[in-house]
Every structure is written in structure tokens, then in C-alpha cells.
Design a protein around this nucleic acid. Structure first.
Lengths: 155, 155
DNA sequence: ATTTGAAATGTAATATTATAACAAGCCCCA
DNA sequence: TGGGGCTTGTTATAATATTACATTTCAAAT
């Protein structure tokens, strides 16, 4: 199984693993992993591309889990706030985090053709920025790195 | 005069210089630097923070230069497409480019308190990403780097 | 067991950001 | 002088996101 990038992997296992990991993490941290939150995570994991809040809402609606925008946004806020998902600013869309539980600055490779998104290590990018930031007295709290281009499948 | 960062500088000169530079650049490249486009650039330059399309539209409207959203978005599209402005994805807002005419991957330091935005050199960050991208066969076309935190004035 | 307070949910309404579509004007230039 | 491409004007609507407030849930403290 390969959780990173555009290559194929056993997706069922991928989803199960992630959900289990996050469930355990929530239990330990005293976070409520409610049915809606779990379902939104599953929906996100089900695709290796970024989904809009309204895409997710549509699924929730069809399953009777909620019908109004705040339902989706609240679950997404929870997932993002706890590092279980990321928002792709460039697409106004969301994606499950491949490495839940680890705090890390995320970087993304976004295919402009198929909208697939891969998460890449971004620590180097952040380190590169820290220099410039320090020089002007700016203290970085969060960094978003998003590269658009063509994935190997679409190239 | 200091065009970069959160420090003070002679703003009138800053604006004049940028506009003149871009005007010349347009003339040379056969781009139409129309009144609306010029005015939007000036509005952006007037602030060292990111402005929403509707903030800009409001100014245009008050000056009789246009009243409908496409007026602002078209001018912004032109400026962004030609590297005279950047979109800050994190804020859904726009900012004039401090170094017009040079093609460069932009990185931004965004103050979460005062919304001031500084442009930082991001080439190192992009180079850092190129490695991961190459490893998975992804070809990068554009990179967005946005760091949020506190600027020296708000810290 | 009961209280209670924080967190989560349900729902309506609305705010904000962005684009589609099409008609009309302008300007270079062949 | 009349094409053709770019730019503008305008209406309408799409897509994304939040506010506000009533209600429910649930676990922890009494």
C-alpha cells in the first residue's frame, strides 16, 4: 500500500487504516469522533482528490446525515482544526490528510486536469521561508504550499 | 524607499514607480493598460494589504468606472495574468506585485491581525518542492506559498 | 440519579466570492 | 472600410461560506 502520491494502492485498506488511526487519536485526545465527522472523513478518503464542501454536503444529504451547509462546514472545520484534513485554498476544496496525527506543514501537488491532489513533505519549503520571514521580523504560524501542474497520469 | 515587507517607505513614490514601470512594460509587450486596469492597480498599490474584488469594485463604483463584478474581476484577471498582481488564495484577495515585470514564483507573509501582506522570495521554496514533485513524476507549473502569522507591528 | 454546562446539531436566512452569457463599442490594420 | 480581436457594459446566476438562534446530547460533578 502506498498512501502518498499518484500511484495505485489498496484503497479499502487505506481508508480503514486512516479512520482507525484517527478514531484512536480522538479517543486519546478526548475529541468527539461523531458519526457525521466520521462520515465526512470517509467521504474525503474515498477520493484522492479535493472535494468541495457542497460535494460532501450532497453525499450527506443523500444519506440523511444533514442537509444544510453548516453541517458540512462544521465537520470539515473539525477535521481541519485537528489535522485530519486540509483545505486546498487554490480549489476551495478539502482533502483528507494522509498522515493523521502528525503535526506537519502541508504542501500539495494539484493536477489541473484531474484535480488529483498529492501531499508532499513541505518542511523544506517552510524552512526556506523562515529565513525571509525572520529577516523582516515576521513570525510564521502556518504555511500553505500549493503547486499546480500535471500529474504523471495526465501528462 | 523600501518596497518589501512591513517597514515604512515613501508610498507615493512607490506607487508612481510601480505604475510607471508597468505602463512601460505594457507598452513594450503590446498590452492595453486601460484606465480601469490602471486604476485597479493604483487601488491595490495604495494599500499594503490584500483587497477583495468587491472592495475594489466599491472604489470603482464610487468613481464611476464600473459597477458590476465582472469589471473588477476582469481588471484583476489582467493584472494577475501578467504578473502585476497576485491572488492571495488564503484570503480570496488580491495584492499588487512589488516586483512587476520579473517572472517569479511568489511567496507571501500574511499577518492574521492586520491583513498586511509582504511578498517574499519563494524560489527556494519552489526548489524544495521540485524534488518531491520529480520523485512522483509531477511537473510543477505554478506554486503558491502563503505563510500566516504575526507581522512585527502586531506581534 | 440529577443537575448543569460545554459541545454538537438542526435549520433558516443571508453574506461573500465568482462566473456565464451576450450585446455593444473601440481600434488596429489590411 | 470593414473585419477581427480585444475590451467593456449589463443582467443574471452560480458557488462558496457564515451568522444566528433554537434544540439536543452527553459526560462530568454533585
Amino acid at each position: 500500500m502506498d498512501t502518498i502520491g499518484f500511484s495505485k494502492h489498496d484503497h479499502t485498506v487505506c481508508i480503514e487504516d486512516c479512520v482507525a488511526t484517527i478514531e484512536a487519536h480522538c479517543a486519546e485526545a478526548g475529541l468527539q469522533f461523531t458519526p457525521t465527522r466520521r462520515r465526512v472523513l470517509e467521504i474525503l478518503l474515498d477520493q484522492h482528490k479535493a472535494l468541495g464542501a457542497y460535494d460532501i454536503l450532497e453525499v450527506l444529504r443523500s444519506e440523511g446525515l444533514g442537509s444544510q451547509p453548516p453541517v458540512a462546514y462544521r465537520a470539515l472545520d473539525f477535521l481541519v482544526a485537528n489535522g485530519f484534513a486540509h483545505k486546498i485554498e487554490h480549489l476551495n476544496a478539502f482533502i483528507a490528510c494522509c498522515r493523521p496525527g502528525q503535526t506537519h506543514t502541508a504542501a500539495f501537488l494539484i493536477c489541473r486536469m484531474c484535480k488529483a491532489v498529492a501531499e508532499a513533505p513541505s518542511t523544506p519549503a517552510r524552512i526556506a521561508l523562515e529565513g525571509s520571514a525572520e529577516a523582516v521580523g515576521f513570525s510564521i504560524e502556518a504555511t500553505v504550499v500549493e503547486a499546480t501542474g500535471l500529474c504523471p497520469n495526465c501528462a
